[in-house]
Every structure is written in structure tokens, then in C-alpha cells.
Amino acid sequence: MSEHIVIKRVSNFIIPFIQLFSLYVIAHGDISPGGGFQGGVIFGASIILYVIAFGMKDGRTRISEILTDFMNSIGVLLFAGIGLACVIMGGAYLEYTKLAGSAGEGHGSHAEHALHLAGHLGIYGIEIGIGIVVASVMITIFFETANTQDDD
């Protein structure tokens, strides 16, 4: 498939936009439809499009096996780590507002603002974690399932 110049040019042009859109979906998960899962899937799809257009070998030089394997675990660890951080700060598991620490104690607009910010950042963090896991797992599944005989 690697000699198809039209597919190559078009995917070269469109892949950055797909990836930008996927990051937008992850970052705006809390105010619009979408979130980590959908954004991660779209990001994975952009890499798979690259592999379909340019071939397995070129794809693996862009995004290596070690990178996707690491990202698999890093995403889950980010999610679980945020939950654990909430426990360390004295709350329940995944109780994001406790991430504010001492700034969230007491009354007044300052404390309230800190609590809101902590909740927001916690949800951002887990959305990013989910996005990393989903994107890297989709890339891994595609690379391992697709037939590699053409390139070997």
C-alpha cells in the first residue's frame, strides 16, 4: 500500500488536525461531550491512519513498541495515582477536592475557589490518564493484529 501517493499526501495533511481534535476532546471533556475515552480513541485512530498509509515499519519508527508499552501502564498509574494522592491528602479514594490541601480549609471565596480548582484538576488528570491508556492500547492492538508479512 506504500506507493499510493494520494493516500500519503492526504493523510500527511489531515493527521495533525485529527490529533489536535483529539486533544481538544480530552481537554474539553468536562464542558462538552467527549472525554478521555473518545479523545484517546481518536488519537489512536490518527496513528493507525498513518500506519495504513505509510506501512508498519515507518509507523514503528515514529511510535516505538517501548513507548506504547510504557504508555499503557503510565495511563493507569496516573489514574490510580491521583486516587492515591487523594488518600494521602486525607480524603477518600478519588475524592478530588481533598487535593486542595490546606488551601481548601475554612470558609470564604478563597477556599471555595481552591476546592473547585482541585476538583477540576483531578478530573482533568484522570481524563488524560484514560486518554493515554486508550490511545496506546488501540495502537498496540492494531500493530499486533495486523499482518506484518509485507514488511518482514
Binding site: G29, D30, I31, S32, P33, G35, G119, H120, G122, I123, I126, E127
Partner: peptide
């Protein structure tokens, strides 16, 4: 969080 679905999920 403005998106209620995200609030429930997260």
C-alpha cells in the same frame, strides 16, 4: 463540572 455525564463518570 458543566457536563453532567463527565461529573457522573469521573
Amino acid at each position: 463540572v458543566p457536563n453532567l455525564v463527565t461529573a457522573v463518570l469521573a
